[in-house]
């Protein structure tokens, strides 16, 4: 269900916790599964549940509680812009507007060509670098002026 490499990464996370608390690795395991599959299908969550010895519903609770899991298939790239107040004061809201216009989508929508899903984010702990955004959860882009936003969009194929 998941690749050997993903399982190896999950095992590394499991090893961080006492043996009887494998469940502790679920947040990392779901993130790893999402890295591989792009999103968390029911089968994937079911698999993670079995792998960690958890009830599937408990995995689902986690997957639906934390924002950065994709519970539906989305575009090839997910762009999450912080629009919280500190960022907004320094252009975060404008950056979001700009992206909406350039991509022709609103928040939680995917471009018709399946390239980008746009999301509104909450504080990323980087307000000093506003506007900030995350590409696919893991790559943070700082000080995103309009020019840099356009560059980024050109880069996301």
């Amino acid at each position: 269900m998941l690749s050997a490499e993903s399982l190896q990464r999950i095992d590394r996370e499991i090893a961080k916790f006492p043996a009887e608390h494998k469940q502790s690795a679920v947040i990392a395991a779901l993130a790893i599964a999402q890295d591989e599959k792009g999103w968390l299908a029911n089968e994937t969550m079911d698999f993670v549940a079995r792998y960690l010895g958890m009830p599937p519903i408990a995995v689902y609770e986690v997957a639906s509680f934390y924002n950065m899991y994709n519970l539906e298939p989305g575009g090839r790239h997910k762009v999450t812009v912080c629009t919280n107040l500190p960022c907004a004061l320094s252009g975060g809201a404008d950056a979001a507007e700009h992206l909406k216009q350039r991509l022709g989508v609103g928040f939680n929508e995917t471009t018709a060509d399946g390239r980008v899903t746009l999301k509104q984010g909450e504080c990323m702990g980087a307000c000093g670098d506003a506007p900030v955004l995350l590409v696919n959860n893991k790559r943070m882009c700082s000080n995103m002026s309009r020019e840099k936003l356009d560059q980024l969009l050109a880069e996301l194929k």
């Binding site: 996370e13 961080k16 608390h21 690795a25 947040i27 986690v62 934390y66 899991y69």
Partner: peptide, 27 residues
């Protein structure tokens, strides 16, 4: 000492929410 990460839930900054999260639950 181990590093663990959250995945997008502000409430996990609250100390007991954080503990729940380390336990592999909703925070």
């Amino acid at each position: 000492l181990h590093a663990v990460h959250g995945w997008g839930a502000y409430i996990c900054g609250e100390e007991t929410g954080l503990l729940e999260s380390i336990e592999g639950k909703k925070g």
